[in-house]
Nucleic acid binder design. Structure first.
Lengths: 192, 192
DNA sequence: TTCATATGAGACATGAATGTCTCATCCTGG
DNA sequence: CCAGGATGAGACATTCATGTCTCATATGAA
């Protein structure tokens, strides 16, 4: 053995491997299993022992992304306060997962033909319900469908994550940029 | 020879091949050269005679995307009328290329490390200039940077193209959805 | 200490996509 | 009619990622 870090050969933490894989694939979607293994600090053989193959790894990442989304939805308490406040909380809570979501978003386009994980449908419905609540309360305009607002939120999250990742924007501006544009738009408000 | 369509063996039109490749790769980013050739109605050998390899094909598609973007920018006459009107014209003009742009957008993330085509920088600057003009005229709010508004426009275009392509939205709503959200946001306007 | 387990390193086979090549065929112009 | 050019079909080698395997080693528990 050439070099041994930490001197530990304990059982690998699958969650740690997933986090490392997510961090890598977030900014290099075509990374090989070899690169993923190196990024996680384990060998390719061990990576294969925990995840049968690249498909299994992506599926596990998808489950992780869904779980983080649902956690963010729970943490944002979408039913409390005004819809605007709920959207703001949601964007803030989902920010750490935005990069992973962007990766899964493009990866899902490769599954065209297969059925997508039902978890995404539930998430879509929860977010759509939030926008619908805002419309019913008179807070949001009604000429933009909840489905479109949901999809637009995804797109803005991806753009925001990309901007932060490429260094063109500061992480601290992430929430503000997205929420302000999504809710208020680019036009200047006369009143308020 | 098994079957001969049209009975024509004339020189292939490279532009037609590019269009076909764009149409295919737009909704199947991992299509092989074989599939691209079939989609274009030519053989893989001929495809290779016109484009040295997959890289060359993608580069050619990038040039096509840049050209279509610039054509849309020209057609939208960004200097005329209010900035809002210019944005509306721009979104309408760029709609046919939105799918291709989405493909190139994700494909560019694979070039990380290499320098990106300078054409994109010019396009970014023209769009940013439009938003800046709107800010200087007092039409747009100034707390959202032109760079972010430009990036957000890309994200919304991608989301809109994806929504239309997946059948979740009607093509006729494309321009309205994007422009209204980008400019007005989700909040209901009190006045106007 | 001794044994079971987990890991790292590397070899090996497999499959897919790619790139190159040849050859037969078909059109078009002379 | 004939020559040249362009194409389609297919064979072939190459490369790369993947998946599987073996073996040596280090760790932790009995």
């Amino acid at each position: 053995m050439s070099h041994m870090k930490y001197g530990c050969l304990m059982a690998v933490d699958p969650d740690h491997v997933l986090r490392a894989a997510a961090a890598l694939l977030t900014h290099k979607a075509t990374a090989t299993m070899d690169e993923v293994a190196k990024a996680a600090g384990i060998s390719r053989a061990t990576l294969h022992r925990h995840f049968a193959g690249r498909d299994a790894l992506v599926r596990a990442l998808e489950s992780l992304g869904i779980a983080e989304c649902e956690a963010a939805l729970d943490a944002a308490r979408l039913d409390e306060g005004t819809a605007s406040e709920a959207v703001r909380r949601l964007v803030g809570a989902i920010e750490p997962a935005a990069g992973l979501l962007g990766f899964l978003y493009t990866e899902n386009q490769l599954f065209e033909g297969e059925e997508q994980n039902a978890g995404w449908t539930l998430i879509d419905e929860r977010i759509s319900a939030l926008f619908r609540r805002g419309q019913l309360s008179g807070e949001f305009r009604i000429d933009l469908t909840p489905a479109w607002l949901t999809e637009a939120l995804y797109g803005l999250l991806a753009s925001g994550a990309w901007m932060v990742q490429s260094g063109k924007g500061a992480p601290k501006d992430f929430q503000h940029m997205i929420v302000e544009l999504l809710l208020g738009g680019a036009l200047r408000r006369e009143e308020s």
